[in-house]
Design a protein around this nucleic acid. Sequence first.
DNA 1: ATATATTTTTAGGGTAGTCTAAATTTTTTA
DNA 2: TAAAAAATTTAGACTACCCTAAAAATATAT
Lengths: 223, 223
Amino acid sequence: MTSMQNSFTEENYLKIIHSLSGREGVEVSTNALAESTSTRAASVTDMLRKLADKGLIHYKKYQGVRLTDSGEKVAIKVIRKHRLWEVFLVEKLGFGWDEVHDIAEELEHIPSEILVEKLDTFLGHPRFDPHGDPIPDAKGNLTEPDYTILTDIQVGEKVLMMGVLDHAPSFLQHLDRSGITLGAVIEVKEINEYDKSASVQINGGQTLFISLEVSKNLLVQRR
Amino acid sequence: MTSMQNSFTEENYLKIIHSLSGREGVEVSTNALAESTSTRAASVTDMLRKLADKGLIHYKKYQGVRLTDSGEKVAIKVIRKHRLWEVFLVEKLGFGWDEVHDIAEELEHIPSEILVEKLDTFLGHPRFDPHGDPIPDAKGNLTEPDYTILTDIQVGEKVLMMGVLDHAPSFLQHLDRSGITLGAVIEVKEINEYDKSASVQINGGQTLFISLEVSKNLLVQRR
DNA sequence: ATATATTTTTAGGGTAGTCTAAATTTTTTA
DNA sequence: TAAAAAATTTAGACTACCCTAAAAATATAT
């Protein structure tokens, strides 16, 4: 049990490597990390050497980077904390789903295993965060549900709104104004050929037009 | 509105200067700060120059240090956050009052005014934290209640247990084992001359002996 | 297949916060 | 009130994380 503490910054790198390497654990490039961390490539190289020394990533010069099992564990713990705190902020404190990201970004680095487990219990062991992202369990199991992107849904199909790919406040606020919330029933009425915009009916009521840009960021589930 | 961010470390110095300078705003020494921050005097001197440059403290070399109004404001905000989070941890998450200090020490540095105000509302605007310390209001008003130390209570008097001076887990656990909780009625039955230990009755029930060391750390109120 | 463009790493450096050792100032004591 | 003791500051240095500019490696294009 090498329970050496990782810094705020190290945790962020691991979290970002996790999210950029996707489900298949593909190599992440230095430039992609520089972009995501808002630093320069040279700074990323420094940090990668450090994370490799600590055994948290697989790193060969010029070859990109991948999490080790131990790095993956740390990343998933951070993700678990982030998502649980988001649930707290929305469900208990009354924040909107468009307001919680930055605050959770800070809270996710508070140490204390016990805190996380008590928070989880207090929230009733939620399985998804306010954006529909799955919350890893205490053992570090993270099962990605197999959602479909709305662009893959045919005219006439009825689906359940389950999550978003884009977490930007402006996008989430747009959904709020359109009445598209998690759990809403979306029926695709029509798809325009020339721009792939769609006409959809929400919860059997209002019909509205959504652009391809929006469709590409909506995760839904067939019933 | 000079809303420049103060670092985690700066906030800690300000909070500690506040608590060491007491209600009269007396000068705090470099060595006292080194002790409280677990650093060396030389490091404290560096930080004091920095805080003085930022206008957060009054500092003249070799003369000790005092908060400016602006420094006082920052310190009180940190104290407000610390105490609100302690209430959350005890009341909502079920932590014991002996377990929350270190976690609150981290949470108190999470930025976001809105977060604090929503937390305060969620908790029902508590006036005291789990140790009986008063919680500053949103405007930064901190009114210290005029508690009495148990050593100043005469034999025969009945008082209410209102707070503790020592927040050490071992002390709080000792009180737990003795059945001395916030709000308990304490009647002083007898005081031993030679060691000032006392015999007290709790809530009209069990009688127990408490040492001078314990009495000196109990804050009570006459009724 | 070689020249060009892109990506990544190295070299050298900066700031925040910490340290030890030495110098200086203040306080205490005789 | 002068010497000794204690407290404080200065000097110089270290780590974590970041930077720019230049060098090296890889990828792309003709």
